[in-house]
Simulated assay, not measured.
Amino acid sequence: MASYLLPADGLLPKWLLFVSIVSIANSVQAYISLKGTREVYAGPAPPPLPSGIPKRTVAATQESTSPVTPLSARTFGTWTALSCVIRLYGAYNIHDKLVYELCIWTYVIAFAHFTSELFVFRSARIGRGIAAPMAVATGTLTWMLLQWGAYVN
């Protein structure tokens, strides 16, 4: 029975399935809370505060620099869900050239988006929140390009 649930042989299709499952959780989280999305889009670094300020004041100041609104979080959740669907198709149709290309494009768009938010628009900053999506976008995009010939005929 597990053979029906798992995608094609190889690690890449299983990775695409894993990323899709995590993306579903991220999409749901974006709809019910701003916390995770604000961690990714933390905004510009706040100015340094004088010493002696309580930690909770520092945390509140850092959170307040995030440009995330309830609408932008839900939009991000919807975008993530759409990418998840395409990547699920990629996991189960890894040998289909068109599906493989569409899956690659989801990572190109994600990489371009996160890079522009980090360096152009400055709605994100170097840290834990942006590190995971950047690593997944960069790593998976590179992996898919390198494995093209192994999966696409």
Rank of each mutant, 00 (worst) to 15 (best):
S72Q: 13
Y107D: 08
W79L: 09
T75A: 14
G77Y: 02
Y107N: 14
T80S: 03
T69Q: 06
A110Q: 12
T78N: 09
C103Y: 00
S64I: 05
K97G: 06
E101F: 11
K97M: 06
T78R: 12
P70I: 09
H95V: 01
L88D: 04
W79M: 09
A110E: 11
A112Q: 13
T75M: 15
G90C: 04
I109Q: 03
L88S: 08
S72V: 14
W105P: 01
V85C: 04
A112I: 14
R74M: 10
T78S: 12
V99C: 05
S116T: 13
H95M: 04
S66H: 05
G77H: 03
S116I: 02
V108M: 06
T80E: 02
T115K: 15
W79G: 06
F111P: 04
G77D: 04
A91K: 15
I86T: 02
S72N: 14
V108A: 02
T115H: 14
L82F: 09
L82R: 05
I86K: 00
F114A: 10
L98K: 13
S72T: 15
H113V: 10
P70V: 08
E63S: 13
K97R: 13
S66Q: 12
H113L: 10
R87L: 01
I104R: 15
A110S: 11
T115C: 15
Y107P: 07
V85E: 01
H113T: 09
R87E: 00
N93H: 08
P70T: 10
Y100A: 00
S66L: 07
H95K: 15
A112G: 14
H113R: 11
T106V: 08
F76G: 03
L98E: 01
I109H: 03
Y100R: 01
L102V: 04
T80I: 09
F76P: 02
C84Q: 08
S72D: 11
I104S: 08
L82T: 08
P67S: 03
C84A: 13
V68R: 14
V99G: 03
T69M: 07
T78I: 13
T106C: 12
R87A: 00
Y107L: 14
E101W: 12
W105I: 04
I109W: 06
T80Q: 10
A91E: 07
R87G: 00
G77L: 06
I109V: 09
I104Y: 10
R74P: 04
C84Y: 05
I109A: 07
L88I: 12
I94E: 01
Y100M: 01
V108D: 02
D96N: 14
G77T: 08
A112D: 03
Y100C: 00
A81T: 06
